[in-house]
Amino acid sequence: MHTLRDAFAARRARGQAALVAYLTAGFPDAEVSARALVAVAEAGADVIELGVPFSDPLADGPTIQAASFDALAAGMTLEGALALLRDFRRTHDTPVVVFSYLNPLLRFGLERFLEAAAAAGAQGLLVTDLPAGADPPIEQAIRRSPLDLVRLLAPTTPRRRIAEVVEGGEGFLYYISRTGVTGARDALREGLADEVRALREVVRLPIAVGFGISTPEQAAAVAGAADGVVVGSALVDALRREGPEGAGAFTAALRAAMDAAGVGPQGG
């Protein structure tokens, strides 16, 4: 099985940035969601973030909110998301990060979840509402597990806090490209490349940039500055509009644009 770091390293060895693709588990329903995972993996996603739908997705914009509500209405559960992952794992080895709010994991039982997710074939876990230092026992339990604890850094994160966030992070570091919730945006923020360059001074993990990246052109621009590009809402939009084939085609377009752009300025 590939690890998250392997996935980034493999792209970097080819002078390319990794594509991290977000999909909401069970959207629009379990069967189509399973096909979407396969389509996105086969179209060139290097890492898949599998979002666990939640009733109160307060870090998400309208697209992923709507996908979460639709998935829940179609009967998706945390157990169901792990079943999707297990099925996907039978045929594909693309690393998967489970992307969740904390409460469904607590309800399921954290230790039980960590075991079940690893057994289902997850490589990492990203908990939106668990910032570094918020709950040391939970964070330690995740780090002790086979899953990588993927940490987020925001443009608002104070300098003195960056080291603390980075130190506990595993797999890759997710840099939020702007303040706000998830969702497609027309323009990328100025200064992003400089911020990523500054982060490299203190971050040894690969850096993936996400939030608001919605077109192949934007993905290519970010690929020129970072080790990875996360695309979520725009991909979920494509899935909603055009089904798994559309999500696959969009992923392929992102991949092609990023490959043409090459990798960030840091080099090795």
């Binding site: 939106t128 910032p131 230092g133 918020a134 987020l152 925001a154 608002t156």
Partner: peptide, 22 residues
């Protein structure tokens, strides 16, 4: 700081990273 802000085990700061500075 996070521990000081709890009431027994309850409370805490379970928020997106973006809000920590605020």
């Amino acid at each position: 700081a996070a521990l000081e802000e709890r009431f027994g085990p309850f409370g805490g700061r379970y928020v997106p990273e973006t809000l920590i500075a605020a």
